[in-house]
């Protein structure tokens, strides 16, 4: 890791357990600023969980997260988030512009209403994702790709330095995927750091200049050309971790099962 680059995100020893069953083990990494970073790993590897743990949506059993050198809780303003599309009810009675304006709420603080400048900014963000014509459209009338663009525009409206995106390419058409990646490139050029949960191994080298390989724990992190190797991919997708998950499973079993095992052991 070169020293001249600033560290945008630093994660140390992050461990997350659901119902006492560990899903992420001691994850450590530091992301240099100004990169487009792919978070790669098989299903159930804990990719979304990692984002949620970084953003403090799920409690971590151990570890800490720093954004530009300070704890996440103090730096929320610097962080933008694009959740999975299915996480919300698209029948909700708001229009596209309303959703994008939500990105401004963090800057507004409590009690203040969005002003003209916020509206204009939100419109500019919609322009950036090519959705300006849809500003007054009810969100239930959008296609999957359009919904994704609206979420991106909302994140842009946050004016963050670091973006976390949970599968922005899931279920979108090819045209949307190209325009999203164009947008991400632009963010990178502006010096922002973007961490993207990504599934399609074919496009990793094309899209990302940095990668994190994850499978319950961090396998590798670094520039794509040296990190995205066959060896590392085998480690990430190979079955070497069955013992880890087996042990985690045994640990999370109710006491009876454990007592039974103890009995057999003796």
């Amino acid at each position: 890791m070169s020293l001249d680059k600033e560290i945008a995100v630093e994660v140390h020893d992050l461990t997350v357990a659901y119902h006492r069953r560990p899903v992420l083990w001691g994850v450590d990494f530091a992301l240099p600023a100004g990169h487009l970073i792919g978070l790669i790993g098989p299903n159930g590897a804990g990719k979304s969980t990692l984002l949620k743990a970084i953003l403090n949506m799920v409690p971590a059993a151990s570890g800490w997260v720093k954004i530009y050198g300070k704890p996440y809780a103090q730096q929320k303003r610097l962080v933008g988030y694009v959740p999975q599309r299915e996480s919300v009810d698209w029948d909700f009675p708001v229009n596209v512009l309303d959703v994008v304006l939500m990105g401004r709420y963090g800057h507004l603080g409590l009690l203040r209403r969005p002003r003209r400048a916020d509206y204009e900014f939100a419109m500019a963000c919609l322009e950036q994702v090519g959705m300006a014509n849809y500003a007054r459209r009810q969100i239930s009338q959008l296609s999957g790709g359009q919904q994704q663009r609206v979420f991106l525009a909302r994140a842009l409206a946050q004016e963050a330095l670091v973006y976390f995106m949970d599968e922005p390419f899931a279920g979108v058409d090819a045209a949307t995927e190209r325009s999203i990646i164009g947008l991400l490139e632009q963010l990178k050029k502006d010096g922002k750091t973007v961490l993207v949960v990504h599934h399609d191994l074919q496009t990793v080298q094309e899209y990302f200049d940095w990668v994190l390989l994850l499978n319950m724990r961090l396998i590798a992190a670094g520039p794509t050309e040296v990190t995205f190797t066959d060896e590392n991919l085998r480690k990430t997708y190979g079955g070497r971790l069955t013992i880890l998950s087996q042990a985690a499973h045994a640990f999370s079993q109710p006491a009876d099962a454990l007592v039974g095992r103890e009995g057999r052991e003796g």
Binding site: K52, M57, Y81
Partner: peptide, 9 residues
């Protein structure tokens, strides 16, 4: 609409 997002703000 989106409580998880609200939390990140």
């Amino acid at each position: 609409f989106d409580p998880a997002y609200a939390l990140t703000l």
